[in-house]
Design a protein around this nucleic acid. Structure first.
Lengths: 132, 132
DNA sequence: TAAAAAAACCGACCAATGATCGGTTTTTTG
DNA sequence: CAAAAAACCGATCATTGGTCGGTTTTTTTA
């Protein structure tokens, strides 16, 4: 379940469903198909692939599947980070990766470190509050 | 220069050179080839590919190339994070990604958030010191 | 209930990329 | 100059994502 490769269309479909919440292949195609000149079949295959990857859930409503994201964007991002870095992040504890991320964040913009700290604080308070 | 896919062998070779600092194809093959039952040619191709990707530098010493990592592990990790997440990290500012990372870190182990904070603090002081 | 419409399902092809190497040329060097 | 070492060239294979056409199954609906 580790490494997760996503193509352009797969990401586009995910984006679409994060926006729409849950929908049928046809509707997704309606929104993305035109812009890309892509057939409904292609969208169906892509939905199926995302489903097999565990990134979409689906339920049969009447005759057609309704697809919905199986996780939020943040969760997927976390898995992508994990998948992309795990093979390279040495076994010397996770600090290499934490360091790398701090460097990365600092490169983005000056205020990023502040926001990162704030998010840590919020995460802490939520966790302690919510369960324990 | 964005997306960066690394195969198993490519990562193994990078690891090897982060350890060795700089070396010839033959030496890398000496260390990795046996374990994998891989030919010297395969190692050479892989070094070449990594070189083309900008992940290794090389200089001709005598008749053979000496390859060395073009960046440290942390820098590569940062690029992998960027490459893996950029297509999915919405355009709503970088906070989605920061949040995802905080979640990810928190999942790793309890103390990770503490270390992350410490690293932020250190990064800050280094930066202001260095070019303040 | 039988035809028409809709959607799933199946299988196929293409392109890119990483792993893998054999063989040939070039460069050293003894 | 001959032998050894390494680069260089090109070729094959597997996997994966994008792309469909055609067939079967399921629903409608006339």
């Amino acid at each position: 379940m580790a490494d997760l490769r996503l193509g352009d269309l797969e990401v586009a479909v995910l984006e679409d469903l994060w926006g729409a919440g849950a929908d049928h292949a046809k509707a997704v195609h309606g929104r993305l198909g035109g812009r890309r000149g892509i057939s409904l079949n292609t969208i169906q295959s892509t939905l199926e692939r995302l489903y097999r990857k565990g990134l979409l859930e689906r339920t049969k409503e009447g005759h057609a599947y309704t697809y919905a994201p199986a996780m939020e964007r943040e969760r997927l991002l976390a898995r992508l980070i994990e998948g992309a870095t795990a093979p390279v992040a040495g076994s010397d504890g996770a600090d290499t990766l934490l360091t790398a991320f701090v460097d990365f964040a600092a490169e983005q913009d000056e205020a990023a470190l502040d926001r990162l700290e704030a998010l840590i604080a919020r995460k802490r308070s939520r966790d302690s509050e919510g369960r324990g």
